Amino acid sequence: MSTTVGNSPYAESSGSFTRRGPRFTDRIVASPSSEQEWQAEPGRYRLVASLACPWAHRSVIVRRLMGLEDAISLAIVDPLQDDRSWRFSLDEDGRDPVLGYRYLSEAYLARDPENGTENGVSVPAIVEESTGRLVTNDYPQITVDLGIEWAKYQRPGAPMLYPEELREEIDAVNEGVFHDVNNGVYKAGFATKQARYEEAYTALFARLDELDERLADRRYLVGDHITEADIRLFTTLVRFDAVYHGHFKCNRQKLAEFGNLWPYARDLYQTPGFGDTVDFDHVKRHYHQVHTSINPTQIVPLGPEPSVWLEPHRREGLGGTPFGPDGTPPEPLDAPLRPLPPLEG
């Protein structure tokens, strides 16, 4: 989601980091009933995501779990940004082959020529292919709608990620995870006063301790299979030791030192749709080379060793199945989503 180049633009005078919410909150639904709702149609939309960004990573996971690859095309932006934010410089001639844009900001300005970028340029973003206009950057709603509103185009065996009978519990878990974990690492990392950093740090680890205890006797956060709650937590956990522990000073302990969160995270990583959408190279380059106020040398650390994510997790004995009683895994990916060239220098 971040649009940051160098210093965070969201640090208040109090020293706190405050995340801006999505500005464009239209929805893509099965049966539109207002001007803010768009028709779900295969071949009409392009999902623009960064493999570095945890907020965008959610949508990549859900698109894959639901088997929507043929219905919604995917564009992967460069993990490095310049002063115009997310760019398509990994593509031939530096242009997205479908939209023809060099920068995602062009889709924002196609939607609102005067004020389209005033609240930043964030991912994930869904763009209408025929017009090049941004439809939505509402990252919490995008994944929910991909799981529900696109049911007609989902693969057989796709999981129910937001079942009605569990929504109240999922929402409650997500609320705490968002404030203290997903956003909490940013509040710690971008704090500009010691007291604000310590507040975020304390809340983060209190919530992680609570989640670690919750996962002692259950395989997933809510219910017996993967839900929205697991996806939202996973994208922060998978980045924790690689960037948040050191880069954002969230260093009471590593994820690998939690008794339940660590095997839980490995369980998800080894589930099709999760680990095969993770790119630690994108992740580390973005955080360590874009946040120059935190890492002015832009040196990218070599570790941790990714192979530890493939160690046995032994959580099958807790019961439950990843995709539900009638669900099946998505087909294997043919190739990585978007590899990067070797580091220079």
Rank of each mutant, 00 (worst) to 15 (best):
A203R: 15
V300I: 11
C53P: 02
R266S: 13
H247D: 04
T321H: 08
E199W: 12
R232H: 06
R84H: 14
R95V: 10
V127P: 09
L134M: 09
Y153L: 00
V283Y: 02
A71C: 09
I61S: 10
G116Q: 09
G327S: 05
D217R: 11
G157R: 04
V238L: 03
A71N: 06
T271S: 14
T292M: 02
A172N: 03
Q194P: 07
E37C: 02
G94A: 07
Q154Y: 02
S16M: 14
L208H: 10
L221M: 10
L310D: 15
Y264C: 11
P342L: 01
P159N: 04
H245A: 10
S307P: 12
P342C: 08
A200Y: 15
I170E: 01
T235E: 03
I299N: 10
A256R: 13
N174P: 01
T236H: 13
A30I: 00
R111E: 14
L204W: 10
V123M: 10
P341D: 01
V222R: 00
S130E: 14
R252Y: 06
A71K: 01
V60R: 11
P341H: 00
S85P: 09
E168N: 06
P342T: 13
G327W: 01
R218E: 09
L99Y: 11
R20Y: 07
T131N: 13
L310E: 15
A75Q: 08
G184K: 03
P32A: 00
R232Q: 04
R95H: 14
D224L: 10
P97A: 09
Q154L: 05
L90P: 02
W38T: 09
R102P: 14
V185G: 08
R84W: 03
Q36Y: 13
D96E: 04
R314P: 07
Y45D: 00
E213G: 11
N115I: 08
L146E: 00
W86G: 03
L166K: 01
D212I: 02
G223H: 04
M1S: 09
R64F: 00
M1L: 07
D334Y: 01
P22L: 07
V243Y: 00
Q253R: 11
D276I: 05
R285D: 07
I148E: 14
S16N: 08
N115D: 11
P325Q: 10
E169P: 08
